[in-house]
Nucleic acid binder design. Structure first.
Lengths: 334, 334
DNA sequence: CAACCATCGGCAAACGTTTGCCCGTATCGG
DNA sequence: CCGATACGGGCAAACGTTTGCCGATGGTTG
């Protein structure tokens, strides 16, 4: 286990100064081509690889980017993780994954610890309030996913649009009274969906009953399902797939047939949506693309030659129809 | 966005030399308590935080650890990710997650890129052969999960033991002929399970038919299911849950009742095992604990005061019985 | 022929921290 | 009173890289 070769070794081997060796390897055209070749040759022979640490100290940039997620075990984030990882790898960046444990304190702790370590961060579904988010965005470059922040680049997934589509799907199946089992009040996405549902309901001649807020976890599906049954509807749009899974569990437990007596629509199309029986009709979010786009935006901001300014990318969703939605029943169960 | 304070600033503010400031903050007892207090006070006021890069360059250690997984979207690894992340965070290490894309080349590329960046690595289900693995283990500290390497610390999950337990469970339900839908030949775990099944079968008076290898993906469950049906058995032990999901899909497609006509047992108890209908009986692997233990082993190795030597931790599994296993049918379907 | 310029290489500082070494002072035992 | 020892602090080197500046050389232009 011998000490890895440094630029000094390469310079010595090729008979030039360290500075020349550095330039030969990183500044094309700056040194004579013959010298450069000699240096490159020596570097190759010695198996030289530049030290990221040395580089970082000198340049102030680490070529690392963090991805903060509230919960690594939530399948919602798998696609995002994969998308950012792929985009970062393409540019040779190191991908630091951080679990913020669904807590504001942990998230801020992580940001504080990461600030000197990474060049920027992708914040997926941040739990931070707008003020903190804005203040952090002055500290270092970041891009949010599904969380619009003024003057700040971000990627949004148009689940609201998908919700309208889902309601149309239910309307076409004859449903006239539909519940929305909503997510946290703090959720931007939830607010937008409620707004879309209001106007779409009017247009489609469907009555929408807003329920919740529910915590988007499977365990909380029971409460949601009970509220849904009490609302005397024939279909429910769940805030996300996890909540929908829980709703399906509870409906099965209470002997309510899906989709015979109740149709259920999820959101996101996470891993597992096609595992449940019946398969879950859901609003598919292009999460891998979202992660990819977020990393893309961040890398653009990190590129000093790039023009500044914040950009917002909105990605469309589409409805995936599986077995959990069907013709509206003639009689309402409760 | 002002330059963050450095040790130099702290030293100036408290009227001591940089070296003294450094020692006051990191070497308890080395400087006079009064001076130390003064320095700490100044550091606090300035909001000083040591630069990881500076530290790394000087000490040669980055306080970062990588976790390499073949595929971040495979739910098998979620628990491991969570476990290592938790353990590393407890010691203030940064967690670098790398997706090796199921490929030997990508895995080696990642290791090469990471070697100068991280202090060590946890390799989960490495695709590298023994030779490469051994040679890499000379390059930097690493710990494997579910992959024994001579003279190298690792964590093993005793799925083989769980397989014995599962076979006993099936035997007690009256199954007399059981298939094992095996995983990749290269898998150490697969080999061990086949061995355990041989002896357990003898002991339990059950006939075990070894099938495969199958790629442990849901898509490959169809082929596995067909092979199982052809083998005229009443139950099947799948290499992992993903394969089991695929088997369930195919059996449903072919109209085979589970567990009425065929019992199915998975392995790992990943996210989704309790989502399928019927719920999947499976061998639960303590993956979060495995990740935790692996990180623990690695951190111990990184601690210079710690005695060397390789340690292997073996974690027990347990059988989770859900709806996919039941009484053996009187007649065999095929 | 002089003034200018482009090319190419080297020197040295800078990034922020840790640590080996040295020195002055104070304390203690003899 | 002297030597040994402990304590507390500072100097400077080291880690590996990048880059501003300078100088030498050789060529071009008016």
């Amino acid at each position: 286990m011998t000490r890895p070769p440094t630029l000094r070794d390469v310079a010595a081997a090729s008979g030039v100064a360290i500075s020349t060796a550095s330039r030969a390897l990183t500044k094309p055209g700056r040194v004579n081509e013959r010298t450069a070749t000699r240096v490159r040759e020596a570097a190759r022979e010695l198996g030289y690889a530049p030290s990221p640490t040395g580089r970082a100290l000198s340049s102030g940039r680490t070529r690392m980017v963090a991805l903060l997620v509230p919960d690594v075990t939530n399948p919602y984030f798998f696609g995002i993780v994969r998308g950012t990882a792929a985009r970062l790898r393409a540019d040779g960046y190191v991908h630091v994954l951080v679990d913020a444990e669904e807590s504001v304190e942990a998230e801020e702790r992580a940001l504080r610890a990461l600030r000197p370590t990474v060049d920027g961060a992708v914040l997926a579904a941040s739990r931070l309030d707008d003020d903190r988010l804005t203040s952090w965005s002055h500290e270092f470059p970041m891009v949010t996913v599904n969380r619009p922040v003024p003057d700040q680049s971000g990627v949004l997934v148009d689940t609201a649009g998908g919700t309208g589509q889902a309601l149309a799907h239910l309307a076409s199946l004859g449903h006239r009274r539909v519940a929305y089992a909503g997510g946290p009040r703090a959720s931007w996405s939830d607010r937008r969906r409620r707004a879309v549902l209001r106007t779409a309901a009017k247009r489609l001649g469907v009555e929408v009953v807003g329920l919740g807020p529910f915590v988007p976890r499977r365990e909380d599906g029971a409460a949601a399902a009970d509220a849904v049954l009490h609302a005397e509807v024939t279909a429910v749009l769940a805030f996300d797939d996890l909540l929908a899974f829980g709703i399906l569990d509870r409906l099965a437990e209470r002997g309510v047939d899906v989709p015979g007596a109740m149709s259920v629509v999820g959101c996101d199309d996470v891993f597992g949506a096609d595992l449940v029986r019946p398969g879950l009709t859901t609003i598919a979010a292009p999460l891998e693309r979202a992660g990819h786009a977020a990393a893309d935006l961040l890398l653009a901001r990190l590129d000093p030659t790039h023009p500044g300014g914040s950009v917002t990318v909105e990605l469309p969703t589409h409805l995936v129809v599986r077995g959990s939605t069907g013709q509206a029943p003639l009689r309402v169960v409760r």
